[in-house]
């Protein structure tokens, strides 16, 4: 999917994260901060990148501010931000397809 416009999903509440997507410069550019950085930073990065790959997002500037969210939350917030950035979040979301 293409990132057509800036979009965000999530909050800065504890156990949540805020994902911001913007059109990129020809690749994925990830900026990550987390309250559990030292223990889970790499896992969060992996989950974010895998989710983008699953949605075939190849060109985006991604900002993640994590407050200790679980993996399922991270996936959901990234998916939501992608669909919003693609103007595709209103209808026909592929439940059971690429959105597991």
């Amino acid at each position: 999917m293409q990132i057509l416009k800036p979009a965000t999903a999530g909050t800065l509440e504890s156990s949540d994260l805020m994902v911001t997507l913007e059109p990129g410069n020809g690749g994925i550019e990830l900026s990550l901060t987390s309250s559990v950085m030292n223990q889970y930073g790499r896992q969060i990065k992996k989950t974010v990148l895998e989710t983008l790959e699953r949605l075939e997002v190849k060109d985006a500037k991604v900002t993640v501010v994590d407050k200790g969210a679980l993996d399922c939350t991270i996936k959901a917030r990234v998916e939501c931000a992608v669909f919003r950035a693609n103007d595709a979040s209103a209808e026909n979301i592929p439940w059971g397809g690429v959105i597991v």
Partner: peptide
């Protein structure tokens, strides 16, 4: 199983 296994601190 809920939160994942944390990395060891460095």
């Amino acid at each position: 199983s809920l939160v994942g296994r944390p990395d060891d601190l460095q």
